[in-house]
């Protein structure tokens, strides 16, 4: 029996889907069998970031409605051994599936895969409840912004009522030069407020945007810092103790301006 991990945040645009894609891929690179489930019905993205969009035949809703078997809907990623994707439907909305149906599908997947990574939609409504329904563990993604941290706090409060137990925290898109200048919340501040375990800090990295546009998860690259951070998170999930890497940013100036421009996307 595998483990189902939901990746959630409350706020939109903090990098849930990117995180799901990269953690899923990194776990697969570590020799695990992984299924990524996109539960953002109506606004699916995970397939795009993974570059698997054109291979979708059936989706999560088809499985829930019984129009196809679970196996038929799974897309095998040929770049990784043991990595599959269960895409979301693009034409329906979040009410097309119930938490009970989700739980059933996730339970089936857990029998076949070591890890089931559930990509949660933004918000705290039905989409969130669906995504959390089958999960054993939760990862909360936040960025070092007040609003994102506030929403993460809200989500942690909601998760505490579910069976997922204490969630783990990923702080995404940290810009070390801004933190240093005191213009951005630092890791300590966020941990002090949220009071949950940190499982990784991902630096802001243009490469993540580039690779997402190319449909190749960033972890496939071995140069980028964000990629290393994601691979470290995967290793921590597997039980290894990996120290946090230093967040020194050698570039800056013009580069960071570009970054903030792209960060708005």
């Amino acid at each position: 029996m595998g483990i189902a991990i939901v990746v959630t945040s409350g706020k939109g645009g903090v990098g849930k889907t990117t995180t799901s894609a990269n953690i899923g891929s990194a776990l697969a690179l570590n020799g695990k069998t992984v299924c990524m489930v996109d539960t953002d019905i109506g606004l699916r993205n995970l397939d795009v970031i993974m570059g698997l969009e054109n291979r979708i035949i059936y989706d999560l809703i088809d499985v829930a409605e019984g129009s196809c078997r679970l196996q038929q809907a799974l897309i095998k990623d040929k770049r990784f051994d043991g990595l599959s994707l269960l895409p979301a439907a693009q034409t329906k909305d979040k009410t097309a599936i119930s938490p009970e149906q989700m739980d059933e599908i996730i339970t089936q997947l857990k029998r076949e895969f070591d890890y089931v990574i559930i990509d949660c939609p933004a918000g705290i409504e039905q989409g969130f409840r669906n995504a959390v329904a089958g999960a054993d563990q939760a990862i909360v993604v936040t960025t070092p912004e007040k609003a994102a941290v506030r929403d993460a706090d809200r989500i942690i409060g909601l998760l505490e009522r579910e069976k997922v137990g204490m969630p783990k925290l990923i702080i995404n898109r940290v810009r070390s030069h801004m933190v240093k200048a005191g213009d951005m919340l630092d890791v300590e501040d966020i941990l002090d407020l949220l009071a949950i375990d940190l499982i990784g800090v991902v630096p802001d990295d243009e490469f993540v945007i580039k690779s997402a546009n190319a449909g190749e998860p960033a972890v496939m690259n071995h140069e980028s810092k964000a990629s290393l951070a994601y691979r470290n998170i995967a290793r921590r999930l597997l039980g290894e103790s990996v120290p946090l890497m230093p967040l020194e940013d050698k570039k800056g100036g013009m580069m960071s301006k570009f970054r903030s421009f792209f960060g708005l996307k």
């Binding site: 506030r150 929403d151 706090d153 809200r154 942690i156 409060g157 505490e160």
Partner: peptide
């Protein structure tokens, strides 16, 4: 009497 509670009151609670 004094009620004693141990928890973190998070956003929205």
């Amino acid at each position: 009497s004094l009620q004693i509670q141990t928890q973190t009151v998070r956003s929205g609670q």
